[in-house]
C-alpha cells in the first residue's frame, strides 16, 4: 500500500513546510519555509528524517490525520495534547502509527504553531526546490483541506529518539535583539524610543510578517514624507511603513520593499516570534 496521510481535519490553518526556497529572491520569490524552524528540524530528527524534510505546520492545532501504512510521527512546538486513536500520547516524542491509525493535535495552551513530522517526510512535488506553501506568492501546495491525501517519501533512517526534549516556551512578553540598520537614520531618537517601547502583536500578523501595535515611530524632519526607492529585504527585517507601526518580516515576506527598515532581528530569534499570539508584548532591544 502507498504510504500516505489522509487529512481528516485541518484546524484554522495547516500548511506543508520544509526549510523553504532561499536563493530565489532575485526572481522575486520569497524564501518561505517553517516559521519555527528549530521545531520542524527537531520533529524530523525524532522520526529519523533529514532535518530538511517536509512536515506540517499548524496554527492553533486542530489537525487530524490518518496513516495509510505504518509510520513514525512526532509533534513539536509548544506544549500540546496529542491523541492517537483517541488516547492521549506524548508530544515531543516519536510515536508509532499502525495502518489506519488516527493522530489528532489539540490546541496548544500557549504559542501558535505545532509541527508534525512523518517518517519519510511529506512528499508532495517540489516547486523551486521546496515543498513549502508560500502564502504571499501562492507557490507550493495549497493550504491543506479535509480529504487531501499527502504522499510520504521513502524512509531513510530509523527514528533516533532523544534523551530530553523540551517544548517551546511561548512567554507573554518577548525581548528580542534588533541590529539597527540599514535605515535607522530615518527615525528620530531611534535607540531611546525603541528601548523604551513595548509593542503588542497585532491579530493581523501572518507568515508574511508580525505586525506590531503601539506608539508609532516618528521620522526625523529630514526624512519626513520622503519616499524610499524599493530595495531588498532580509527575513527578520523590521520595516516601518507610513503608519510608524513596525512589521517584522517572516518567511513569506516580499523580496523588496519601499518603506525604510529600521533594523533586523537575527535569525536565531525569529522562532520565538513565530509562536507569539496576538496580544503578546514585544520589546525590541536595539544595538548598533
Amino acid at each position: 500500500m502507498t504510504r500516505a496521510l489522509t487529512v481528516l481535519a485541518t484546524g484554522p490553518l495547516a500548511l506543508v513546510q520544509d526549510l523553504g526556497r532561499p536563493g530565489n529572491a532575485h526572481l522575486g520569490v520569497p524564501p518561505s519555509g517553517a516559521l519555527d524552524e528549530p521545531s520542524l528540524r527537531l520533529a524530523n530528527r525524532l522520526v529519523g528524517n533529514p532535518e530538511d524534510a517536509a512536515g506540517i505546520e499548524t496554527v492553533l492545532g486542530g489537525l487530524r490525520v490518518r496513516a495509510s501504512a505504518p509510520c513514525t510521527v512526532a509533534v513539536t512546538g509548544p506544549s500540546v495534547s496529542v491523541r492517537l486513536d483517541g488516547l492521549l500520547v506524548d508530544s515531543h516524542s516519536p510515536l508509532f502509527l499502525g495502518a489506519g491509525a488516527e493522530l489528532e493535535i489539540g490546541s496548544p495552551w500557549r504559542g501558535l504553531r505545532c509541527y508534525l513530522a512523518v517518517s519519510g517526510g511529506v512528499a508532495v512535488d517540489r516547486q523551486l526546490g521546496s515543498r513549502s506553501t508560500d502564502i504571499l506568492s501562492g507557490i507550493g501546495p495549497a493550504p491543506l483541506r479535509v480529504g487531501d491525501v499527502l504522499p510520504l517519501g521513502a524512509v531513510v533512517e530509523v527514528p533516533v529518539g532523544a534523551d530530553v526534549v523540551c517544548a517551546v516556551r511561548a512567554p507573554e512578553e518577548l525581548v528580542v535583539p534588533l541590529l539597527l540598520g540599514p535605515r535607522e537614520d530615518w527615525f528620530a531618537d531611534v535607540t531611546a524610543r525603541l528601548a523604551g517601547a513595548v509593542w503588542s502583536v497585532s491579530p493581523e500578523s501572518n507568515r508574511v510578517g508580525l505586525r506590531l501595535l503601539g506608539e508609532p515611530l516618528r521620522r526625523t524632519s529630514e526624512f519626513d514624507g520622503r519616499e524610499l526607492v524599493s530595495e531588498g529585504l532580509v527575513t527578520g527585517a523590521v520595516q516601518v511603513p507610513a503608519s510608524g507601526l513596525p512589521v517584522i518580516f517572516l518567511s513569506d515576506h516580499p523580496t523588496t520593499g519601499g518603506y525604510p527598515v529600521v533594523g533586523v532581528v537575527p535569525a536565531a530569534h525569529l522562532a520565538a516570534l513565530a509562536q507569539a499570539r496576538p496580544g503578546t508584548r514585544v520589546r525590541l532591544r536595539p544595538s548598533t
Partner: peptide, 17 residues
C-alpha cells in the same frame, strides 16, 4: 552567499548565518 538582490539603487547581499 544565499541571495544577491539588485534593485533600482541598491544590491542586497545576504549570507548564511
Amino acid at each position: 552567499l544565499v541571495d544577491l538582490v539588485p534593485a533600482a539603487r541598491t544590491v542586497l547581499a545576504s549570507f548564511t548565518p
